[in-house]
């Protein structure tokens, strides 16, 4: 109907007043400036990183006279980010391996084998979604002590898993509930058992949910700071984020070029991953947020 009207009255189809040219230019400029504030703190370290401390103190804003890599070397040694990266990847992998299958299994039952009893369990798991990890830090720490998990990487990713399961169970449940029943029925007539239907038919169909969960669980454990701070004590076990925080506390900002080098080294893995996968990351964050 709307289209008919516009077709009959072509003179009304002038450019959207919302898109007046001047406003567009002004707003675009403002948006670009705001975007610059996001990027500038990530780019500025490159101004300082090639200078010596003295050079920085006298001419912080001139271009570096010489490209020196010594700050990078020092910062690299101080952070030992390589080891931290390995620990972080181990934690991420552990969290993914524990969270995703467990949530998929539970979500599948809640979606396809509904009964009064499973609904009760569903609400028990759903309630976990609203528990802030801050609340249970002390018992968690004591528990991991009792299980001999203090200062180990599993002691970090097992609690992380528990706090990730509720959300991903909800996502998997709504995903499995949306899948058509015919395929499962056909397989059952062909003699497939419960396990076969789940593993061979339903799980492959739920691949989008699995990709989503894997990516976001990875990002969550990659960025974690609080739990790592509580659970890990020895330097050798420190994850990347802990090492970055430690560098900040030990070295401070006084030696600015080295600090800049550390900031570049610290931000690089995340920024590179983001540049590669930003489309997926944004899409899956939205999918998670809109469903949850």
């Amino acid at each position: 109907m709307m289209n008919n009207n516009t077709a009959k009255l072509p003179h009304l189809a002038k450019p959207f007043p919302v898109r007046s040219k001047l406003m567009e230019i002004l707003t675009t400029t403002l948006l670009v400036l705001l975007a610059l504030t996001v990027i500038v703190p990530l780019i500025l370290p490159f101004m300082f990183v090639f200078k010596t401390r003295l050079e920085y103190n006298y001419h912080p804003w001139s271009f570096p006279t010489e490209i020196r890599w010594v700050n990078f070397a020092e910062a690299w040694k101080a952070i030992q980010i390589g080891k931290g990266l390995l620990n972080t990847l181990y934690v991420c992998l552990g969290a993914i391996v524990c969270t995703v299958p467990v949530a998929a299994m539970a979500g599948y039952i809640f979606a396809r084998y509904r009964s009064k009893i499973t609904e009760v369990f569903f609400y028990v798991i759903l309630a976990g979604y609203f528990v802030p990890v801050q609340m249970v830090l002390i018992p968690l720490y004591q528990l991991c002590g009792a299980m001999n998990l203090t200062d180990t990487l599993p002691g970090l990713f097992l609690p992380m898993t528990a706090f990730g399961i509720p959300f991903w169970t909800i996502i998997y449940r709504s995903f499995f509930a949306g899948l058509p029943n015919e395929l499962a029925e056909a397989a059952r007539i062909d003699g497939a058992g419960n396990t076969g239907i789940f593993l061979r038919i339903m799980l492959p169909l739920a691949k989008p949910a699995t990709v989503l969960a894997t990516l976001l669980v990875f990002m969550g454990s990659w960025s974690d700071y609080l739990l790592s701070l509580i659970m890990l004590n020895s330097l050798e076990k420190f994850t990347m984020q802990l090492r970055i925080a430690q560098f900040m506390n030990n070295y401070g900002v006084d030696h600015m070029p080295r600090y800049a080098a550390a900031a570049i080294i610290a931000a690089a893995p995340t920024v590179i991953l983001y540049l590669i996968g930003h489309r997926w990351i944004i899409q899956s964050t939205l999918a998670g947020a809109l469903k949850g």
Binding site: C98, P101, V102, A103, M105, A106, Y108, I109, T118, F121, V124, I125, G128, V131, M135, V136, I138, P139, L140, Q142, L143, L158, P159, T161, A162, F163, I165, P166, T169, F198
Partner: peptide, 20 residues
């Protein structure tokens, strides 16, 4: 299928909540 999820939550969430 439900046991792992329930076990994880019982050990690492509900028991700590009770303890808190």
């Amino acid at each position: 299928m439900l046991a792992p999820a329930v076990a994880f939550l019982a050990v690492f969430m509900y028991y700590p909540i009770e303890e808190t």
